[in-house]
Design a protein around this nucleic acid. Structure first.
Length: 272
DNA sequence: ATAGGCGCCTGCTGGC
DNA sequence: TGCCAGCAGGCGCCTA
C-alpha cells in the first residue's frame, strides 16, 4: 500500500502529535509481524522524548534522542494517533504521556516496527540493504548510470529500492506515463534524454501525490486518520480499458516483474 | 552477481 | 445465496 507519498503524509501528520511527547506504556499483540517486536525493547523506549519523526524511502524513523524506532507499513499498515476504541488488527500501541495512543494497525502483517540503539545502527541497516537515494536528491548522471548497467525493464528498475527509494507499483506506472516511456523498455537501451525525463517525471508525480496526501485505494490513511486524495488523479494505474487522458486510447494492463502494470500503448511507445 | 518466482498474510470482488 | 480463484499499494529468500 503505502509508497513514498503515503509514508511522507503519515510522517507530516504525526510530527505535531508526537514531537516532544514520550511513551508511557507499550502494548503488543500476540500475532507476529514481519519482524517481531521484542519485549526487551519496551523499557528502552519508555520515558524518552520524541525528538523528531522523519522518512527515508518507505521507512518511518522516530528519533528518541539516542535510540530510534524504524517503522515499515508493508501493504496494509496504518500508523496513527487516536483515542477511543481500537480497531481489530491493531498490533502495537504506544500510550503517550497525554494519554492519546500511537497505534500500529496492519491487516496483512507485512509491516514492522524495529528498535535501533542509535542512528548509526539504523544507517547500517539501510546500508546493508543498499537503500538508494531519495527521489528528490537523485542525481541525473547517477540515475542514468543505474539504468545503463542493467537489462531489466524500466518497471522493474523503478520498483528496485536500491536504485531510488520510495517508488512502488502505483507511482512507477504513473511516472512512466508522465515520462511517456514504455514499462518494458530495457534500462540499458534508455537514452540520456529519456533517463532525465523519467527522473523528472518521478519527482513531479511524487510531489503532486504528496500535495494530495497520497492515494487511498482501500486501507491507507494518514497519521491523523484522514484518507488520501490522489487516487482520483491516476492516469494509468487501475484504469485498464479506460480512455487515456491524453489520446483516448484504452489503457492496457500487463504483468511485469510480477506486478500489475498499466500504460497507454500509444503515448508510451518503446521508441521516442 | 543478478533476475525471476514464490511465500508471507488477510480480506474483498467477480464469475460461476 | 454460496463458493472459490484471483487479486491487492511490499519485501526477502531461494534458485538458476
Amino acid at each position: 500500500m503505502p509508497e513514498l507519498p503515503e509514508v511522507e503524509t503519515v510522517v507530516r501528520d504525526l510530527r505535531p502529535l508526537l514531537v516532544g511527547r514520550s511513551f508511557a506504556r507499550v502494548e503488543v499483540g500476540r500475532k507476529k509481524l514481519r519482524r517481531r517486536w521484542s519485549r526487551a525493547w519496551d523499557t528502552l523506549v519508555l520515558e524518552r522524548r520524541v525528538q523528531a519523526i522523519t522518512r527515508r524511502g518507505k521507512w518511518i524513523v522516530i528519533d528518541l534522542g539516542e535510540p530510534c524506532l524504524c517503522v515499515h507499513l508493508g501493504m496494509t499498515g496504518q500508523f496513527t494517533v487516536a483515542n477511543g476504541s481500537r480497531e481489530s488488527h491493531t498490533h502495537i500501541v504506544f500510550t503517550l504521556d497525554n494519554e492519546r495512543e500511537l497505534r500500529f494497525r496492519d491487516v496483512r502483517r507485512f509491516g514492522s516496527i524495529v528498535y535501533y540503539a542509535d542512528r548509526t545502527a539504523l544507517d547500517a541497516f539501510f546500508a546493508a540493504n543498499r537503500l538508494g537515494p531519495e527521489p528528490f536528491e537523485l542525481q541525473t548522471d547517477a540515475f542514468r548510470e543505474s539504468l545503463r548497467r542493467t537489462r531489466r525493464s524500466l518497471k522493474a528498475i523503478l520498483l528496485d529500492q536500491t536504485v531510488v527509494a520510495g517508488v512502488g507499483n502505483i507511482y512507477a506506472d504513473e511516472s512512466l506515463f508522465e515520462a511517456r516511456l514504455h514499462p518494458t523498455l530495457l534500462g540499458h537501451r534508455v537514452t540520456a534524454q529519456q533517463a532525465e525525463r523519467l527522473r523528472a517525471a518521478i519527482v513531479a508525480v511524487l510531489e503532486r501525490a504528496i500535495a494530495k496526501r497520497g492515494s487511498t485505494i482501500r486501507d491507507y490513511i494518514g497519521g491523523s486518520g484522514l484518507e488520501g486524495g490522489f487516487q482520483i488523479e491516476f492516469r494509468v494505474y487501475g484504469r485498464t480499458g479506460e480512455a487515456c487522458v491524453r489520446c483516448q486510447t484504452p489503457i492496457e494492463r500487463i504483468v511485469l516483474a510480477g506486478r500489475s502494470t498499466h500504460f497507454c500503448p500509444k503515448c508510451q511507445r518503446k521508441r521516442g
